[in-house]
Amino acid sequence: MPGLALLVWVPLVAVVATILGALGALIAELPPASLIEALAAPETRFAVGLSLRASLTALGLALLLGVPTAWLIARRRFRGKALVETVLDLPMVTPPLVAGIGLMLLLGHEAPAGRALSGLGVEILFSPAGVILAQTYIATSVIVRAARAAFGAVDRGYGDSAATLGVPPFWRFLLVEIPIAGRALMAAAVLGWARALGEFGATLMVAGATRLHTETLPMAVYLNMASGRIDIAIACALVLLALAFALLLALRLLSAEKPDPLHDEDPHARIAA
């Protein structure tokens, strides 16, 4: 038994100590006054603003693309499905840097897609739109994977019941399947947003690292570490950590069991909305 205790406790202590150590080192690096000053710096505020705007836009796009895709994969059989599923999982396992190179070449002026977009006056490469594209690309694959599991866990009988009750397919998806999978889909959205916020490699390739233009929080950390502005880099890193902590907490709350609704339901409640 002491052998087992040693085997399981020592790694746990080592992992937790490393995480807390890295976190503590970041926090302790700057005196509070310098940290506040760095947090208030225009560059930090720009990075926070761009990161939030871009990642929320990317999240919206990823949900629009990912949720119907996940439903289709979870609910329908079609020829080549295994291949399609593998392709959808590819962004999860390829380094974001590689995905970024691919997107950059796809949208470059030499490529048909890039030329077509240029013809329409749309410039994605090395612009904030590129940040959104890179984040959407990464977040979508996370959301597809998580939402696929969410829909897979919903008994098909709910949709069948709704069908025999006269509810058309689109409304079954919207009013029955999505709400029933709701908490798991929310968790998928939180994961996707977290991934978009922290996205670096693909963004670097597609949008570049231009100060006060395509400078997201991870990009600000990279640029300011490279140029010796440790205070801004640490401030941005701490903002990222705080956001990640909040998202993880949200995820944990979403995954928690609901309290017994018997205790908060009014038996004489309204006859439906």
Partner: peptide, 17 residues
């Protein structure tokens, strides 16, 4: 298995269809 919609009240289960 009945498949009453768990996110809706009884009355709303009737309302939806």
């Amino acid at each position: 298995d009945l498949h009453l919609f768990p996110h809706l009240s009884v009355a709303a289960n009737l309302r939806l269809p």
